[in-house]
Computed example of a mutant assay.
Amino acid sequence: MHDAVVIGASGGIGAALVRRLEQSARYGTVYTLSRSAGTIDLTDPASIAAAAERIGGPVSLAIVATGLLHEDGHRPERSLRELEADWLLRQYQVNTVGPALVLRHFTPLLAKDAPATIACLSARIGSISDNRLGGWYGYRAAKAALNQIVKCAAIEIARTRKQAVCVALHPGTVETGLSAPFQGGVAAGKLFTPDHAAARLLAVLDGLTPAESGEIFAWDGERIAP
């Protein structure tokens, strides 16, 4: 039995993923990493490298369940007039650069001669081709960049780990602190509990093959266009 890793394990979706994985009894150890626990900080490259070194591998599942949408009075930008350099950079730092460095340091831990999966939570809103409304500049752009990094990583991973899958996941709108200010307009039946989201995401991952590596999948298994 190989191990599993959840990064962002103190968040709503991350904690639900941990519970589901531990209940499954499919993994030797389920490692839980989060900034609040002091075990990883996606804004600190040395922290990411150290966390990977402590775990050591082999790992058959790693999920980056982190994200930043609003912080300290900053909210998604509705127009060009609201763009601020520091807030844009902050969104990229957490939503793109941090997960990219996780891919760098945790990919070498993936099992080489067995199925293995590494996934990052992204968002449908990061799809450039699906953008019909505009706005939310920083979050859209950061998630679009993450999707491209996942695609590149999948191509590289396939060269040495033929059974590996590397994907981005859209969990839908989930009752967490990230979505809390924006839940009012969610259609009935489309606001998910963290446990529901975790169960659906794990079911999607279980159904993927290496041929689908590099893609973006929604909670219901739908493939999302880049």
Rank of each mutant, 00 (worst) to 15 (best):
L121P: 05
L121A: 04
S122E: 02
A123E: 01
A123R: 05
R124H: 01
I125M: 14
I125E: 03
S127E: 03
I128T: 00
I128G: 00
I128A: 01
S129V: 14
S129P: 02
D130M: 04
D130R: 10
D130T: 06
N131A: 08
N131I: 12
L133G: 09
G134H: 13
G134S: 10
G135S: 14
W136L: 11
Y137K: 13
Y137I: 09
Y137H: 14
G138R: 11
Y139I: 13
R140K: 13
A141G: 06
A142M: 08
K143Y: 09
K143T: 05
A144C: 09
A145M: 09
A145L: 10
A145F: 07
A145P: 12
L146Y: 10
N147A: 08
N147L: 09
Q148I: 11
Q148M: 15
V150N: 02
V150I: 15
K151E: 13
K151W: 10
K151S: 12
K151T: 11
C152Q: 14
A154Y: 00
A154F: 04
I155M: 12
I155N: 07
I155Y: 08
E156I: 06
E156K: 07
I157C: 14
I157H: 05
I157V: 15
A158I: 03
A158H: 08
R159K: 13
R159D: 07
T160D: 10
R161F: 03
Q163L: 13
Q163F: 04
Q163M: 11
A164W: 06
V165S: 03
C166L: 09
C166R: 00
V167S: 00
A168W: 03
A168D: 00
A168V: 03
L169R: 00
L169M: 01
H170D: 05
H170W: 07
H170V: 03
P171V: 05
T173W: 01
T173H: 04
V174G: 01
V174N: 04
V174M: 02
E175K: 15
E175N: 15
T176W: 13
T176I: 14
G177Y: 12
